[in-house]
């Protein structure tokens, strides 16, 4: 990759990704409201929320909590940046998990039962989806013969045709990561109905909450980019795939209640992990 192009991607990541992520969040809230027969907030609502939160008086339970919030945002931005620069997929997912771990540590650093139990649930979620991500990387390596993200662009046919089951098993991971029903166990950003109040983010307020919100936008863009990897040969296909995923998740969010974590682990490991393993095994035998 040429030097100016790389610089362009870095700038775009910093400036464009939050705009796209914010608009997508706004779109998602609007779609959910329409599905429920409501008018819903304007498309630019997330930006109002962000600016408002940023200018509220900061309040933190302890200093270390603040460090973890910044770490969360930093790792989230870094993983997106590395992805767009076409770096090592294994490394990227590793950094991505780091972002979640930072949030968990932040939640555990406070002596609030809501935050603590929220963090414990987040750990369970991490354990639940991490094997699928590892299998995704393995499958990716089998098809492309490389861990580099940039390799996917030079394939003859999209990854989707060789890894359809892995893509399906990625759906629950996506739902867990964007904290949507039925797997919104640890916290929800915009729906308040939780036995744990706000779970892991209960103790954050003002600007720190704004940072978590911002990180969630980067996260959304990163996850959608990861989905579009499955059709990386053609940018139209990639966008289409990401859009289908996005709306599927929004609709699923709307038609399911929250499940308990034991059910989630069972379901994701049986169905999600099962599908991914079948796909990987099939690649081994068929090749």
């Amino acid at each position: 990759m040429s030097y100016p192009a790389g610089l362009g991607i870095i700038l775009a990541t910093f400036l464009l990704a939050p705009v796209v992520g914010g608009l997508l969040t706004g779109l998602e809230r609007k779609v959910i409201a329409r599905l429920q027969g409501r008018v819903g907030p304007p498309l630019t609502q997330p930006f109002y929320d962000l600016v408002k939160l940023w200018h509220k008086r900061p309040q933190a339970a302890n200093r270390i909590q603040i460090v973890y919030v910044y770490a969360h945002l930093f790792f989230m931005v870094t993983s997106l940046l590395a992805f767009l620069l076409g770096q090592d997929l294994l490394l990227i997912l590793f950094i991505f998990s780091f972002a979640t771990v930072a949030l968990i540590l932040g939640g555990l650093s406070v002596d609030s039962p809501y935050s603590r139990i929220g963090s414990q649930r987040e750990i369970i979620q991490l354990v639940t989806y991490e094997p699928i991500l590892v299998l995704l990387v393995i499958a990716y390596y089998q098809v492309t013969g490389s861990f580099m993200v940039s390799q996917a662009r030079s394939l003859e046919q999209p990854l989707l045709f060789t890894l359809p089951l892995v893509l399906i098993s990625f759906l629950p991971v996506f739902i867990i990561k964007v904290r949507k029903s039925p797997f919104d166990l640890a916290t929800q950003l915009h729906e308040p109905h939780q036995e744990l109040v706000k779970g892991i983010i209960t103790e954050y307020s003002g600007p720190y909450l704004a940072l978590i919100e911002l990180a969630s936008w980067y996260e959304l863009v990163f996850l959608l980019a990861l989905v579009s990897l499955f059709w990386a040969t053609n940018w139209v296909g990639g966008l289409l795939l990401a859009a289908i995923f996005f709306f599927a998740v929004t609709v699923i969010d709307n038609i399911t209640p929250r499940v308990t974590y034991s059910w989630m682990v069972k379901f994701v490991w049986k169905v999600g992990l099962g599908l991914a393993v079948v796909n990987v095994a099939w690649l081994y035998l068929w090749k």
Partner: peptide, 16 residues
């Protein structure tokens, strides 16, 4: 009750 199990859509429809 729908709200308590996190089924927001059903909550909205019942209240409608």
């Amino acid at each position: 009750a729908a709200d308590a199990i996190g089924y927001e859509s059903l909550f909205m429809q019942t209240w409608r």
